[in-house]
Amino acid sequence: MLANVLVALVALIHLYFLILEMFLWDKPFGRRVFGTTAEFASASKVLAANQGLYNGFLSAGLVWGLMLGSAGRPVQLFFLGCVIVAGVFGAATVSRKILWVQALPAAIALAAVLIG
Rank of each mutant, 00 (worst) to 15 (best):
L58W: 01
R73M: 09
C82Q: 08
L110T: 09
K45S: 13
P105N: 03
A92E: 13
A11Q: 04
S70H: 11
L20Y: 02
G35K: 04
N55I: 00
S70T: 13
L104D: 02
D26W: 03
I108N: 05
A38G: 10
F79V: 00
T36W: 06
L12R: 07
S59Q: 06
L99H: 06
I108G: 10
L114M: 14
A106N: 01
A92N: 14
F17Q: 15
L15H: 03
L6D: 01
Q76L: 15
L20G: 11
W64G: 04
H14A: 07
L80R: 00
I115M: 12
F79K: 02
A106Q: 00
F17H: 14
G72Y: 02
N50Q: 10
L9Y: 13
A3D: 14
R32Y: 07
G65T: 06
V101L: 12
W25Q: 06
W64N: 05
A60L: 14
A86I: 07
A107H: 09
W64P: 07
A3N: 11
G69I: 05
A3G: 06
Q76Y: 11
S42G: 14
A60H: 00
G65N: 10
V88M: 08
V63R: 03
L18F: 11
R32T: 15
Q51I: 12
L2F: 12
A49T: 09
V63G: 01
F29E: 07
R73H: 10
F17N: 15
T93G: 04
F17D: 14
E21G: 05
A41R: 06
L62K: 04
G72P: 05
V101P: 06
R31N: 01
A71P: 09
G35D: 03
L6C: 02
L6H: 03
L47V: 12
G90L: 03
S70I: 07
F23V: 15
G65D: 09
H14K: 02
A60E: 04
T93N: 15
A111W: 12
G30S: 09
T37M: 07
R31E: 06
F34Y: 14
A3Y: 09
L104M: 13
A38P: 09
L20N: 11
P74L: 02
P105A: 01
K97W: 13
A11M: 02
F23S: 11
V10N: 01
L12C: 10
I19F: 10
V5I: 12
F40W: 14
A107W: 07
K27Y: 08
T93Q: 12
A112I: 04
L53C: 13
Q76N: 15
G56H: 05
G116W: 15
E21K: 09
Q76T: 09
V88Y: 08
V101H: 06
L2Y: 12
L66M: 01
P105F: 02
M67P: 04
F29Q: 10
V5A: 14
T36E: 00
V94H: 12
S44H: 15
V94I: 15
T37V: 04
G90E: 01
G65V: 03
L68I: 08
L6I: 01
Q51F: 07
R31A: 00
Q51T: 13
M67Y: 13
L80D: 03
A111H: 02
K27I: 06
R96V: 15
A3Q: 10
P28E: 05
F40M: 11
L20K: 05
I84L: 05
V7F: 00
L24E: 04
L9A: 15
V101F: 08
Y16D: 08
I115P: 04
A111C: 08
E21C: 11
V5N: 00
